[in-house]
Simulated assay, not measured.
Amino acid sequence: MRYFAGIDMGGTNSKIGIMNENGDILKTENIKTLSGEGVDKTLERIWEKVKEMMSSLNIEYKKLEGIGMGIPGPVIDQKIVGFFANFPWGNDIDISEKMEKISGVKTRLDNDVNVIALGEARYGSAKGYKSSVTIALGTGIGGGIYIDGRLLSGATGAGGEIGHMKIVKDGNLCGCGQKGCFETYASATGVIREATSRLMVNKTNLLYEMIDGDISKLEAKHVFDAAKQGDKFSLDIVEYISEYLSMGIGNILNIINPDVIVLSGGVALAGDILLDRVKQKLPKYSLKVTLDNLDIVLGVLGNDAGIKGATALVL
Results as ranks from 00 to 15, higher is better:
residue 265 G to W: 02
residue 19 M to L: 09
residue 81 V to Y: 07
residue 112 D to K: 01
residue 135 I to Q: 07
residue 151 L to E: 13
residue 111 N to P: 03
residue 136 A to R: 06
residue 3 Y to G: 04
residue 161 E to I: 05
residue 140 G to C: 14
residue 166 K to S: 11
residue 291 L to A: 01
residue 200 M to G: 11
residue 36 G to V: 01
residue 143 G to I: 13
residue 60 E to N: 15
residue 91 N to F: 05
residue 74 P to A: 09
residue 299 G to S: 15
residue 231 D to L: 07
residue 28 T to Q: 15
residue 236 D to M: 12
residue 307 I to K: 09
residue 97 E to T: 11
residue 52 E to R: 10
residue 231 D to T: 05
residue 284 K to R: 12
residue 220 A to I: 06
residue 21 E to P: 00
residue 63 K to M: 00
residue 63 K to I: 00
residue 195 A to I: 05
residue 141 I to Q: 11
residue 148 D to M: 07
residue 94 D to W: 01
residue 144 G to F: 01
residue 167 I to M: 01
residue 112 D to A: 02
residue 54 M to T: 05
residue 307 I to F: 09
residue 209 E to D: 15
residue 252 I to L: 13
residue 112 D to G: 05
residue 310 A to L: 05
residue 23 G to H: 04
residue 133 V to M: 08
residue 312 A to W: 02
residue 117 A to Q: 08
residue 232 K to D: 13
residue 199 L to S: 10
residue 76 I to R: 12
residue 18 I to C: 06
residue 3 Y to V: 10
residue 141 I to M: 11
residue 264 S to T: 15
residue 254 N to L: 08
residue 50 V to R: 02
residue 110 D to E: 14
residue 282 L to T: 08
residue 116 I to K: 11
residue 272 D to V: 02
residue 120 E to M: 08
residue 54 M to S: 06
residue 223 V to Y: 04
residue 227 A to P: 04
residue 43 L to G: 05
residue 312 A to G: 06
residue 31 I to P: 00
residue 267 V to M: 13
residue 233 F to M: 12
residue 159 G to E: 09
residue 195 A to M: 03
residue 192 I to S: 08
residue 315 L to Q: 11
residue 40 D to S: 03
residue 98 K to I: 15
residue 51 K to S: 13
residue 293 N to Q: 14
residue 8 D to E: 08
residue 28 T to W: 04
residue 30 N to A: 13
residue 271 G to S: 14
residue 209 E to H: 08
residue 265 G to Y: 02
residue 170 D to L: 06
residue 307 I to W: 11
residue 135 I to Y: 05
residue 300 V to T: 15
residue 197 S to L: 15
residue 50 V to Y: 02
residue 139 T to N: 09
residue 20 N to E: 07
residue 65 E to Q: 14
residue 168 V to Q: 06
residue 295 D to P: 00
residue 263 L to A: 14
residue 303 N to S: 10
residue 86 N to I: 11
residue 254 N to P: 05
residue 65 E to M: 12
residue 68 G to P: 08
residue 23 G to V: 04
residue 57 L to Y: 08
residue 162 I to S: 08
residue 94 D to Q: 04
residue 302 G to L: 10
residue 11 G to W: 02
residue 301 L to F: 06
residue 261 I to A: 05
residue 207 L to N: 02
residue 8 D to Y: 00
residue 209 E to G: 06
residue 137 L to Q: 11
residue 241 I to Y: 03
residue 168 V to E: 13
residue 56 S to G: 10
residue 233 F to G: 11
residue 153 S to E: 10
residue 151 L to V: 09
residue 224 F to E: 08
residue 283 P to S: 06
residue 149 G to D: 10
residue 213 G to M: 07
residue 1 M to F: 00
residue 109 L to Q: 12
residue 290 T to V: 12
residue 277 R to M: 09
residue 43 L to W: 04
residue 48 E to K: 14
residue 311 T to M: 12
residue 6 G to A: 13
residue 32 K to I: 08
residue 294 L to V: 05
residue 147 I to T: 13
residue 130 K to P: 00
residue 137 L to K: 07
residue 8 D to K: 00
residue 50 V to E: 03
residue 305 A to L: 03
residue 75 V to T: 12
residue 226 A to Y: 01
residue 128 G to D: 12
residue 83 F to N: 12
residue 247 M to K: 15
residue 112 D to E: 07
residue 157 G to Y: 06
residue 153 S to H: 11
residue 75 V to H: 04
residue 185 Y to L: 07
